[in-house]
């Protein structure tokens, strides 16, 4: 119905409110294949809600979301078909505690994508291997450290070979030492050409991997541009104010 045919994802005029509280106001965003878009901004600026809207976890109040040239904000679209092409990782890991790491990773491939058990396990194991989690495959999530759990959650999201990966402040619950091990995976995925939209508080990381940075403030994208521009010469006063507080001087 809308959207430029080339873009992987395009959002225009997106609005979302909870009751009287407007959380997203006229948000527009375009994601091309292999883009890494970093959403920055203070807590409550709407970063997480935007990601949840992209994955159709929230019913939007206005605007259009198009994915692979098809409007997915149309109520007639089956959200499961969309979600099976989009991966998402949450701040609190959200691994299923009653399943082993391997079973966490093979659940969706087997039940949603109809992959055989052997095939799903061999793919999961090779990904776990690549991210240094091979020896933890048989463990339950609560037996692992936060960093290991978050890496496992990333593997779980990658197991379905998504075309777009949404990361919602995935290092916010980790101590600084563990942040690096998680971000190095994201960096590797970015270099491999994975398209990602990332809500993050890690400015150094955003500067490094982002192809484009969006600064959100009170539900609006106030400023968007390549990291070199946003971090060194932001045009908006509000952006400068935010960056002064979060960037080491």
């Amino acid at each position: 119905m809308s959207g430029q045919t080339a873009s992987l994802l395009s959002v225009s005029g997106l609005r979302k409110s909870y009751g009287d509280r407007v959380v997203l106001d006229d948000v527009s965003l375009t994601v091309e294949p292999h883009d890494v878009i970093c959403l920055i901004g203070s807590s409550g600026s709407g970063k997480s809600t935007l990601l949840r809207c992209l994955n159709l976890l929230e019913e939007i109040d206005d605007g259009i979301i198009a994915f692979e040239s098809r409007e997915i904000s149309d109520p007639r679209v089956d959200p499961r078909a969309v979600r099976s092409r989009i991966g998402m990782v949450f701040q609190a890991y959200n691994l299923f505690p009653h399943l082993t790491v391997l079973d966490n990773c093979t659940l969706a491939p087997r039940r949603v994508h109809g992959v055989s058990r052997a095939e799903a396990e061999s793919r999961a194991l090779s990904l776990l291997e690549r991210f240094g989690l091979a020896e933890h495959a048989a463990k339950h999530p609560d037996q692992m450290s936060g960093g290991q759990q978050q890496r496992a959650a990333l593997v779980r999201a990658l197991c379905t070979s998504p075309t777009l990966l949404l990361l919602d402040e995935i290092t916010a619950a980790l101590d600084p030492e563990l942040v690096g091990e998680v971000l190095s995976i994201v960096r590797a995925e970015a270099e491999a050409g994975m398209t990602m939209v990332i809500a993050t508080h890690e400015m150094a990381f955003a500067r490094d991997v982002a192809t484009s940075v969006c600064f959100l403030d009170r539900g609006r994208i106030l400023e968007q541009g390549p990291p070199s521009q946003i971090f060194s010469s932001p045009t908006e006063e509000r952006t400068r104010q935010f960056l002064r507080r979060v960037l080491p001087t």
Binding site: S17, D25, D61, D62, G63, P75
Partner: peptide, 21 residues
Amino acid sequence: MSDWSPSQHELDRRRVRSRLR
């Protein structure tokens, strides 16, 4: 926020939602 009114697209979508309901 008070100056917002739903777009034509949103109105169409609401009609579709209510039809689905």
